[in-house]
């Protein structure tokens, strides 16, 4: 970067410098640190149920970030759907697959270090590109909220009606698909259990749990 463009960039950033952050930025930074830390614990803890509970902290932190970005409706949808139902589904999934309650030493697979290398390389590249591109871009958060329920509903039902209705068909298909998958698996398990009773090994205990 030549000195002229660097001076131009600092002049453009001079009105909103990184060294004199606003209150919203400080709050965003603090909540962001908590969110990122909870995400790191989610992918690195050896206790499977704790991973789901740290995921709650991550998703709740993201809801607070949406509130700080004045997207209220998205924030409440995030709380309702992610924290309310997705995490509960994941906990049910852990329970039904009989995840061990305590520490499980084989939670990470053998290619852990390769995954770490890939993730750190991707993080470095993405952060470098993003910071270089949006160093001087400023979001003006004053004025009316840009994501209130009124604004979001108006845009959703004026411009996005067709995708919205198509999405309901997709949700119906997903619902039917989940039911079909569960029922078919049950019928197959019953058939295999009748023919070779010792192979599945877990069906009788699962019936006992239910």
């Amino acid at each position: 970067m030549n000195p002229a463009s660097a001076a131009l960039a600092t002049a453009a950033a001079g009105t909103h410098g990184f060294l004199s952050p606003t209150g919203v930025e400080i709050a965003f930074l603090l909540v962001g640190v908590v969110t990122f830390g909870a995400a790191l614990v989610t992918v690195s803890t050896k206790q499977l149920v704790h991973a789901a509970l740290w995921l709650v902290a991550t998703l709740g932190g993201l809801a607070v970030e949406y509130l700080l970005l004045t997207a209220e409706f998205i924030a409440w949808v995030q709380v309702l759907i992610y924290v309310g139902s997705v995490v509960v589904l994941l906990l049910f999934g852990l329970m039904l697959t009989k995840a061990p309650i305590g520490r499980s030493p084989d939670a990470d697979s053998g290619n852990r270090w390769a995954a770490l290398t890939v993730a750190i390389a991707a993080a470095a590249a993405l952060v470098w590109v993003v910071v270089d591109a949006f160093r001087t871009t400023w979001i003006d958060l004053s004025g009316p909220a840009s994501g209130s329920t009124e604004v979001t509903g108006a845009s959703l039902f004026q411009h996005w009606v067709l995708p919205f209705e198509a999405l309901s068909v997709l949700l119906l298909a997903a619902l039917v698909g989940a039911i079909v998958l569960s029922r078919k698996a049950k019928a197959d398990a019953a058939a295999t259990a009748a023919s070779t009773p010792t192979v599945p090994g877990s069906r009788s205990e699962k019936e006992g749990v239910r």
Binding site: A39, A51, D108, N111, A119
Partner: peptide, 15 residues
């Protein structure tokens, strides 16, 4: 990138 690490490194399908 945290999620990318988790997808590549975790062994349990729910994780």
């Amino acid at each position: 990138c945290t999620g990318l690490y988790g997808v590549l490194a975790r062994r349990n399908a729910v994780l």
